[in-house]
Design a protein around this nucleic acid. Structure first.
Lengths: 319, 319
DNA sequence: TCGAAGTGATAGTCTGTGGCTATGTCACGA
DNA sequence: TCGTGACATAGCCACAGACTATCACTTCGA
């Protein structure tokens, strides 16, 4: 019965392998792994020998990953993710609501949500330490899949099958422009068709909020301005001085318009909006603490949502 | 950047852990792993220490798995399965259609399908060695999930989410009884309602074919006989001598009725049937060779299917 | 009641794996 | 042409993990 024929390779060897692939070289990988380059080289070479696959082509000017190596690397990463889950599982055995979680947040949410929510989380889950990071959706998803972060707060349109999600809340879009602009003068909620033919300033590529705003523009006949902003603050400055119009998530209005330089007008219900979710890798060992965090976020959400039903077309939402 | 903090534990330690759990003791596990008991004990103890979880309670009369241990073990198995996938991936890099595959087959299929199909497989895929095993559906699924076999030929009703499947063919059910029995005398195909009030002999519990036949009985008003058979051969003997009726898969008729001791009658179309599939673990590294095997099985299937459209209500289907 | 047979743990020894430093070889670019 | 940075090689050392022998304990049966 060959059931117990041992796995020759070790987890450490797999880590070395993946490190070389990701950092693009043995020296850098060795440094990152905290070992000397010859030690790492030897381990990788031995792993290649036991697997019977050459993963890297060694050149004097660095390495190349072979075709066979790519598929082997993908499997190696899977093993390491599973091992990480094992570690997590074990670590949480005592108190599932204790320990450290790494959560990524998209840039159009992070600075507005965290200041309110981080203290609430600490109160609700005092033994849990959350390390926040900020990145765009695609990067966050990759980081989740590679177990480099434990979860992310994102605004999903398309469901990613490798992730599980929990809805935090709906974040409505609002119109924003310099006070006096014709689009934001009326007190009544705007119809989406008000955007027809209008030039709208958007975020630069890679922000999911750009895509969502762009979709709304496409549906309403608006078109994107030639210039893109690197963040919502920039966006606000651009339309605040000029004559343009932009879309903002309600979540950001209180902070971005704290000096009242903009006039803001909401849409008729059902207002266009994005759904914020907490997402984590399917099968993660951290279901328990993540679900607890998700619950806290859900509870806290009305704090940010307050503008939506009763927003005034004036500046300076309460703060 | 804690990205590269190493996994302390090794795959070998995980194997030891799982072996202890499955074999129920350190000595047996050590023997199975081919190491001395103290070596294995030390490794398991260290693993428990690094994970911070006591997986086993040690008693003089063996071990018990702790509650925390159960969940840790499940994760450990996942890591080993991923490692097996890595090995498989690497091994198949040269020729994906070479090497060895372990395939399980349910008892109501194995003896009838293999004699025909094994040579065909060898012809079509000469570099592939298939090791066949026979077990019931539930056991096979567990073996697939634990990477103890690579695939199985089963008759699924409920789809199991952890498995991917490829249909081999439809295997119709037929009525079988001693020649002269009123149910098998007419030449015309039977209506399912013919079973109403009839006592039908079935396989013993655990055979999926029992459940499928039982479902048909329930739908038609038949009821199960008190006595169950351990296999189709036994079933044939039971009804061949007595006055009972049974259901057989068409696949088995040629072999089981080779001496013509039974009269067989098919059902009106659409005849009740089971779907035979080749199933493997989702994400298995063996997609390529398994799909190739599935294709050969599909092609070969009409060989066994021949009775269905034109079956006579006589004995002795061609062979 | 006591010993045999089973469990896993402990003690002490040895070897091979995987680490280190120092150096070699090669390709490219200044 | 030589310097620089890539990865490989050589040689050494230490400790992890294997082994054998034995202990401590429980259970079962004579």
């Amino acid at each position: 019965m060959s059931r117990w024929d041992p796995h020759q390779s070790s987890l450490r060897q797999l880590q070395y392998l993946v490190a070389v692939a990701e950092l693009g070289g043995f020296r850098r990988a060795a440094q990152a792994c905290g070992v000397a380059q010859p030690s790492l080289s030897a381990q990788v070479a031995q792993l290649e020998r036991t697997l019977g696959v050459q993963v890297f082509e060694r050149h004097a000017r660095g390495i190349r990953i072979t075709a066979a190596g790519e598929v082997v690397l993908a499997r190696a990463r899977q093993v390491l993710v599973a091992a990480t889950d094992l570690d997590d599982t074990a670590r949480r055995q005592g108190d599932p609501l204790a320990g450290t979680l790494r959560i990524g947040v998209i840039p159009t949410v992070c600075p507005y949500l965290l200041p309110e929510v981080a203290p609430a989380l600490h109160t609700a889950l005092p033994n849990l330490t959350v390390v926040w990071s900020e990145d765009k959706t695609q990067a966050l998803i990759r980081q989740i899949e590679e177990a480099r972060i434990d979860a992310a707060i994102v605004a999903v349109d398309a469901r990613v099958n490798s992730l599980e999600t929990m809805t935090i809340g709906e974040d409505a879009f609002v119109l924003a422009a310099a006070p006096g602009h014709r689009l934001v003068k009326p007190a009544a909620p705007a119809s989406p068709s008000a955007l027809d033919g209008v030039t709208v300033f958007l975020l630069e590529d890679g922000h999911c909020f750009r895509d969502q705003a762009l979709a709304l523009c496409g549906a309403t006949g608006a078109h994107a301005a030639g210039l893109s902003a690197t963040g919502l603050s920039t966006l606000v400055q651009m339309v605040g001085t000029g004559s343009g119009v932009t879309l903002l998530p309600q979540l950001a209005v209180a902070v971005e318009n704290r000096r009242g330089q903009l006039a803001v007008r909401r849409f008729k219900r059902p207002a266009p909006s994005r759904t914020l979710v907490l997402a984590w890798r399917r099968g993660s060992a951290l279901q328990r603490p993540l679900a607890a965090i998700g619950a806290v976020l859900q509870q806290a959400w009305p704090l940010f949502d307050r503008g939506v039903p009763t927003v005034r077309s004036t500046t300076s939402n309460a703060r």
